[in-house]
């Protein structure tokens, strides 16, 4: 890849230390985010998408912990920052919006003040100046009557508006990377399209890179430049969006794509991948996906595949694509 990488996640491992054992929620994930691009992370729920994001943000809390790997933001290692250093990165160079717009804002503080706080934390401006900036960003993210909305409490706004406030809060300091964890899952389909369009626009205008986490392949197709497909804490396939849909390689990705309902095909029943996500405490000895894979053979059940190069910028964690070039370990 020729573009400059702003966020480089290498071999990230985040484990939860529970009474029943160590849960490898994120198990050796490597993600590169080029400047100004939208990177997608897809996968079924429980596969470690959110925990990857939380690890990058330094938001993992007991019993979760980053146990290995490095996170580099714009050339600076931010894997193990002190709370003080971390507070200058979060919300400033690196920001995040969450899946739950209804509960992600403090119910007893006006939305304007909550966004203003983000400005005052990271920039030396007066309160009045900050307020002006909030109203400006409210206008940019498409909140009607921004002056009036400044003094609204979260419960007075719809879910879509609240998510716009969250986006405003995340973008107001012009971060290098914004992580959006299923930002539209809780919203109506019509609102979803608006929010995605808004994020795309902001990304283009401010040059902010976005990591868009979703379980919706349709959203990926429309929004992302490059996609990582995750399963049980590992990246199973990664490719440019077009290549991923054109040369879908991993059986898991194929299953995910097949389970999208299509208008032109009259399927009797919607396709589903058989079986359930394995318990992370009792992962199979071989490939994490072997218990549900229709093509798994004896070797898949015994040995873990590495991420093999299947094309230009296209990696697949499957023995079918075993080759000299390994993008990543086992």
């Amino acid at each position: 890849m020729s573009e400059s990488i702003v966020l480089d996640i290498r071999n990230l491992k985040s484990h939860f230390f529970t009474a029943k054992g160590e849960v490898p929620a994120v198990d050796g994930v490597s993600i590169q985010v080029p400047a100004g691009k939208i990177i997608g992370i897809v996968g079924e729920s429980g596969c470690g998408k959110s925990m990857t994001a939380m690890s990058v943000m330094g938001l993992l809390r007991y019993p979760g912990k980053v146990v290995d790997g490095t996170i580099t933001l714009d050339g600076r290692d931010i894997t193990h920052l002190s709370p003080k250093e971390l507070s200058t990165v979060r919300g400033n160079e690196l920001s995040m919006i969450f899946q739950e717009p209804m509960t992600s804002l403090n119910p007893v503080i006006t939305v304007g003040r909550q966004v203003r706080e983000a400005i005052l934390l990271h920039q030396k401006v007066s309160r009045d100046e900050a307020k002006k900036r909030v109203i400006e960003i409210f206008r940019e993210v498409g909140i009607p009557e921004p002056e009036k909305r400044y003094n609204s409490y979260p419960h007075q706004l719809s879910g879509g508006l609240r998510q716009r406030v969250m986006i405003g809060m995340a973008m107001v300091c012009k971060p290098k990377v914004m992580i959006a964890d299923e930002p539209t899952t809780a919203l109506d389909v019509t609102i979803e399209a608006q929010i995605l369009r808004l994020m795309k626009k902001l990304c283009r205008e401010q040059g902010t890179s976005i990591i868009l986490i979703t379980h919706n392949m349709g959203v990926v197709a429309e929004t992302c430049d490059y996609v990582y497909v995750m399963y049980a804490g590992k990246v199973m396939e990664q490719a440019e969006t077009f290549a991923l849909f054109e040369n879908t390689s991993h059986p898991y990705t194929q299953g995910l794509l097949k389970s999208i309902p299509k208008l032109n095909e009259k399927a009797e029943r919607l396709y589903t991948i058989e079986g359930v996500v394995p318990n992370l405490l009792h992962l199979p000895e071989g490939c994490n996906f072997c218990t549900r894979c229709t093509e798994a053979d004896a070797r898949c059940r015994k040995e873990k595949p590495a991420l093999y190069q299947a094309g230009d910028g296209h990696g697949v964690r499957c023995f079918k694509y075993e080759s000299e070039v390994q993008l990543d370990g086992k």
């Binding site: 943000m57 938001l59 709370p83 003080k84 507070s87 200058t88 990165v89 979060r90 919300g91 400033n92 920001s95 995040m96 969450f98 739950e100 509960t103 992600s104 804002l105 403090n106 119910p107 007893v108 503080i109 909550q114 706080e117 983000a118 934390l121 990271h122 969250m166 809060m169």
Partner: peptide, 26 residues
């Protein structure tokens, strides 16, 4: 445990700021 506490941390508040500014009032 609330989601908005996570938001407060994500915007760059230190733990003391999170508690005094966001949790205590609630």
């Amino acid at each position: 445990q609330n989601d908005f506490i996570r938001t407060a941390r994500a915007k760059g508040l230190r733990e003391s700021g999170v508690i005094i500014g966001h949790a205590l009032k609630n």
